[in-house]
Design a protein around this nucleic acid. Structure first.
Lengths: 141, 141
DNA sequence: TCCGAACGTAACAGAAGATGTTGCTTCTGA
DNA sequence: TCAGAAGCAACATCTTCTGTTACGTTCGGA
């Protein structure tokens, strides 16, 4: 399958929550977010559920319920979003253990793990420099 | 599915080809590579086929055939490998077009594309600093 | 205290991709 | 010509993602 689009859905929802907030609407329902993202409300609730667990949004239940930002949009980085919704590493090791009788098979996994971590750290550091506020400002520019 | 392991398979195969070369074996069959990676020979041929198209290995057919490195291991970076085998972007945009009646839906895609490209470039730059030779040296260290 | 709106979540289906397997074709050196 | 090995297509299986329905849960307000 293609890379998953969870970061995109989450970033879209957060930017939309921030824009609504600026317009005086502190709370949006999953239906309202889903209408902008063009997906199902359950997908949004799942995604925002991840963000809630990470403290990026708050969810109110009951009558008049919905989601709102858990902290200022300028203090939510794309790295926060990525960590909240992306459990998978960018690159995977072997599915089945390599042949340990071969020097390469015996030693390659920690080596690749280190190298993949280096690259992933660079990826994360770049995401950490951009916030939901940046995203919205660029959209409105 | 989890992130794919094609880069891992390819890097493993290349490191093994280089080690074999140092030991005096210029050519390995897909069966021999598969034995080290612990997978099927067809998987190896598919993977090395990608690398061949990128010029990283050469394949000889016929009797006594097999694969060998297309250029020195110190001149094959992990970025070369990644580009040869990874067609998918690290982060995907929306599966279905967002709602264009919403300001966020209308403007978010190019913004996220730019931000994802930034992060992906950082990831690539890190991979570009490591070669197959580095991988093998670390394995043997 | 009850009701309704909306979140939380489980269950399921469909689509797509990755891996693995078999079998056949093609190439080429000996 | 022959045998070994790559190339390649077809298929099965497994997993993940997305989408959908359904139902339980929570809580403000009448």
């Amino acid at each position: 399958m293609a890379a998953n689009s969870r970061v995109t859905i989450a970033a879209h929802a957060l930017a939309w929550l921030e824009l609504a907030r600026r317009r005086g609407r502190e709370v949006l329902t999953s239906e309202e977010v889903a209408a902008s993202v063009n997906t199902n409300a359950v997908i949004v609730r799942r995604s925002l559920g991840d963000l809630q667990r990470a403290g990026l949004v708050t969810a109110r239940r009951g009558n008049g319920a919905g989601f709102s930002l858990g902290r200022p949009a300028a203090e939510i980085t794309l790295l926060d979003v990525w960590l909240a919704v992306s459990p998978e590493p960018l690159l995977a090791l072997h599915h089945s253990e390599p042949n340990l009788d071969c020097p390469v098979g015996r030693g390659i996994r920690p080596v690749l793990t280190d190298l993949y971590d280096e690259a992933t750290d660079a990826f994360r550091a770049t995401l950490a420099r951009r916030t939901v506020d940046d995203v919205l400002e660029r959209i409105l520019a």
